[in-house]
């Protein structure tokens, strides 16, 4: 059995899921909001990229930068417009989660209307994707030259930011203990905005890469959301390296796992999303802390109980 094609596919998907999941992990760890509207950050990034490339004739690089800013601003707007006011009024995390589903629906269907009017319900960024070499039977294309370096550079830059800059360390501190960060003088609302901006931005770039790698619809983010959550939950929703491992594991599980089950147990590939789902359930049941850190179930219990320090 030649494994080169599933290997390259897994790495490509794993990288894209990683980029998407890193944004979710960042926003969850700092704000403790399980943001379902994260899906729409992927989609907006994808559309901005595809439309700039197809309609304006921009290069992929410039379009990805635009996608970064578009999703970054959308993420900031979500927080400033909905989450922050709700938190200030003392909303429970469950309400924030429901609100995020609502935001997602609104953005998704606005996008649907727009896409319908402009006949771009399905669209692909028409970049010149060409074969540049082979790895076994698998083709290495120009899109891989975008996906892999962007993922690696993003991971390295984020790591440097979190460990070697003041705002980065403060964000980690906020994720650990917001009150303590405040009494240490951290301007949490400014940093929160910075966090949403970066988290939204990289998620948008991932969506943009997706529009060049494959094809997008207004629901692309929604369909990817299960994987994004699976990847992030594997890292306990808060762990940086755990999320990266999670993204790659989801990418590999979906390609190797399903190929394996299909070959040996005749399981239909249509069951592919079940892999991510099973990952989520197993992690929540057996190891609620993921690979590192955060006790999701414990946290939920505490929040449901309400109040109490």
């Amino acid at each position: 059995m030649d494994l080169s094609i599933p290997l390259i596919n897994s790495l490509t998907l794993g990288s894209l899921y990683t980029l998407m999941a890193l944004g979710l992990t960042m926003s969850f760890s700092v704000t403790k909001i399980a943001n379902f509207a994260h899906a729409e950050l992927v989609t907006i990034g994808g559309y901005v990229t595809a439309l700039l490339v197809n309609w304006m004739g921009y290069g992929l690089g410039e379009s990805l930068i635009a996608a970064f800013f578009a999703s970054a601003l959308l993420a900031v707007a979500m927080d400033e417009g909905v989450f922050k006011p709700m938190i200030k009024r003392g909303s429970k995390p469950l309400f924030l989660l429901v609100a995020s589903i609502g935001i997602g629906l609104v953005v998704r269907y606005l996008l649907f209307i727009y896409a319908d009017l402009n006949a771009v319900i399905t669209v692909q960024a028409k970049t010149n994707v060409q074969l540049i070499g082979r790895f076994g039977r698998a083709g290495i294309t120009t899109i891989h030259l975008w996906v892999f370096p962007i993922t690696i550079v993003s991971v390295v830059l984020l790591h440097l930011m979190f460990h070697y800059t003041k705002p980065g360390k403060a964000l980690r501190a906020m994720a650990d203990n917001e009150d303590l960060a405040r009494v240490s003088g951290v301007k949490i609302y400014t940093l929160r905005r910075l966090m949403w901006f970066i988290a939204g931005g990289i998620t948008g770039v991932a969506g943009g890469l997706w529009s060049a790698y494959s094809v997008i619809t207004p629901e692309i983010g929604w369909y990817a959301l299960l994987r994004i959550f699976a990847a992030s939950i594997l890292g306990g929703l808060v762990s940086f390296w755990g999320t990266i491992a999670g993204g790659l594991i989801v990418g590999f599980a979906e390609n190797f796992g399903i190929t394996f089950m299909n070959t040996y147990f005749n399981v239909s590939t249509a069951y592919r999303p079940l892999i991510s789902f099973v990952i989520i359930v197993i992690v929540l049941l057996l190891k609620p802390t993921g690979f590192a850190g955060f006790d999701i179930v414990g946290w939920l219990k505490e929040k449901v109980k309400g109040g109490g320090e």
Binding site: I5, N9, L13, Y223, A224, E254, T269, A270, Y271, R272
Partner: peptide, 18 residues
């Protein structure tokens, strides 16, 4: 090869066809 058309990515199905 019956593929789930709702999936964001179908590369695994294409690989099976291949």
């Amino acid at each position: 090869i019956i593929y789930d058309y709702t999936q964001p990515d179908l590369s695994a199905d294409v690989e099976r066809a291949s």
